[in-house]
Design a binder for these strands. Structure first.
Lengths: 341, 341
DNA sequence: CTGAAAGCGCTAACAC
DNA sequence: GTGTTAGCGCTTTCAG
């Protein structure tokens, strides 16, 4: 209520100049005696240096901007949690925004961050190029998390090792005898789809393009994709869902169409979420270290010196995934044949 | 990269004084001609007013602080999403922090917000009183969301109408024939437990204190509480879980102990989450409007004029819940009797 | 080792 | 209607 205590108040109370207070509080040199007096005065007055003044003067905020498509998606929530944890450890504030994977919205949020003087951003990019132009022009340090956007080879990224995760899953399914495996892909998951194709090919199996479908990141679209897939291709015996949303849709669609998991279809989901264990049967998943991805990305953005915006292209940091086998995969059979009889 | 464009640059480019630029950009009066020139120059230079300068000058940031126990919990994620949406509509940045429901951590985050000069905060309070003392002392506007803390009658709150939600659920179960209903309570859910007791009493049923247990907001603790409850009281026929975490634990524990839902136990969870529909059977829930709670809280904190910190006590805003009947509740039977035979 | 003073970008008096 | 100017709280030369 009463006016905020400023550095001037502390200086007066301690009988020194403001510069001295500033020095003492930021660990500069001062005589033990002076330091003592300043510290006492500061404590006495419950002084908190204003970040506003400091940032204006230093021309940088230190804060971290955090952009996620949807904080309500458990995957991004975990990424955000990691960023929050790292920022907290570094004592930096986090300004957050949801983009809904919409470039226009992303653009707005970036504009807001720029206005706030934020100079570091961790983002799950929507994939569009334009929204980021003002940001790189302004020279802010950005690190992409969980996804990489084409045309930004110079922006560091931290993501799950999707290739290896998908490969392990496909190999697992093929080992179980599956031959007609589908892939439900989502937004910004080109890597996963590519890895899916490559693994199949490497295993000497044909790639059936009809078994590779996509859903937009919304429940209805995901459900439509899953349901359509099951109905159009009754011969498929396994599906890999590219996100928890798509996995959810697959479980729901399978249930709706009276397909038993894993008797009729085997299911693997990319992303581990608490409910995967609650399902009947519990879902086998490829678990990406979402929280670690966020933490690492934040660490990276905090380490990177300010100036280093555009420059050498950096290879994305890949974090290992883990195949957690639960109960949603069975031996591969001729589902279509059985059902047709 | 190059130095940020300042108001001075715009003024020079437009051939006017800085004050004029400021006026034009904040909708003040100016001759159409001047306005035109300023706007053109600003657009040309891609000028973005610095929030740092403005905030320092105006002595307020406008930004909203957002404190949640755990962004990874789908309930708080939805609350946060609501706050984000409202703040976005108002063009205000949101600084977020996770408290882990730990007063000490809460204290730290509040300190950080104070340092940042944030003057409005929406928070799901941990329940402790001390962390908030510096905040109210500094005169910042706070609105509690989803929970209310004792001793803060003067802080507005927006929450679910827990009494009515719990009452509806208990009445529903009693109507189904249940007499031994348990309540799994969580952190900061005094209201719910009280409503549970009251409804039972109002219905002329005895309150069995042994059937009211609590879990800390962690998976292991929640599981222990649920599991213990089922084992200690094989005679119970229904349980109301006070949060999605507790509901998850109940589902898991029931499964582990080979209790069928709803044949052996009926289950109602406070909070609706996507996986509730995926469960077998799908869970009947009391759905609180989490996102709306966040949105309303943000609206409220944005509306409240700055000075109005301490003052008239305000009754919490209660948002209606909805009982969504799915498949986890059956007729009440003598579970204990059956099993003992 | 310490203090005085400049100035970060902006807005709000105040003068013209 | 428009320009000049004084700070907002802080850090950082630069003298002493």
């Amino acid at each position: 209520m009463r006016a905020r205590t400023t550095i001037k108040d502390v200086a007066e109370a301690a009988g020194v100049g403001v510069a001295t207070v500033s020095r003492v509080l930021s660990g500069g040199s001062a005589s033990p005696q002076t330091r003592e007096r300043v510290l006492a005065a500061a404590a006495q007055l419950d002084y908190r240096p204003s970040a506003l003044g400091r940032n204006l003067r230093r021309q940088r905020t230190g804060g971290i901007g955090l952009l996620v498509p949807d904080i309500t998606d458990p995957f991004y929530a975990r990424v955000a949690d990691g960023v929050l944890a790292c920022a907290r450890a570094a004592g930096e504030p986090v300004i957050m925004g949801a983009t809904g994977d919409d470039p226009e919205s992303e653009s707005e949020v970036i504009g807001m961050l720029l206005e706030q003087g934020v100079d570091r951003v961790v983002a799950v990019p929507s994939g569009a190029t334009e929204p980021w132009a003002p940001a790189v022009r302004a020279g802010l340090t950005v690190v992409f998390a969980a996804r990489h956007a084409v045309g930004f080879d110079d922006i560091p990224a931290v993501m799950a090792d999707e290739r290896s995760g998908i490969r392990t899953a496909v190999e697992y399914l093929v080992g179980l005898g599956h031959r007609r495996i589908a892939h439900l892909g989502g937004h910004g998951q080109g890597q996963r789809t590519a890895a899916f194709r490559d693994t199949l090919t490497a295993l000497g199996l044909p790639v059936d393009e009809e078994l590779i479908v996509f859903g937009r990141p919304a429940r209805d679209s995901a459900y439509a994709a899953a349901s359509g897939l099951f109905q159009n291709r009754p011969d498929l015996t396994a599906v890999i869902a590219g996100s928890n949303l798509l996995g959810e849709a697959a479980v729901l669609a399978a249930h709706e169409l009276d397909l038993r998991v894993p008797r009729d279809v085997s299911l693997i989901m990319f992303d581990d979420v608490p409910w995967a264990e609650l399902c009947a049967p519990p879902l086998t998943v490829i678990a990406p270290p979402a929280r670690d991805i966020g933490y690492r990305a934040a660490e990276l953005v905090l380490r990177t010196p300010p100036g280093r915006g555009r420059g050498g292209r950096s290879r994305p940091v890949k974090m290992p995934t883990e195949l957690i086998v639960r109960g949603s995969c069975g031996p591969g059979r001729q589902r279509g044949a059985t059902r047709r009889s």
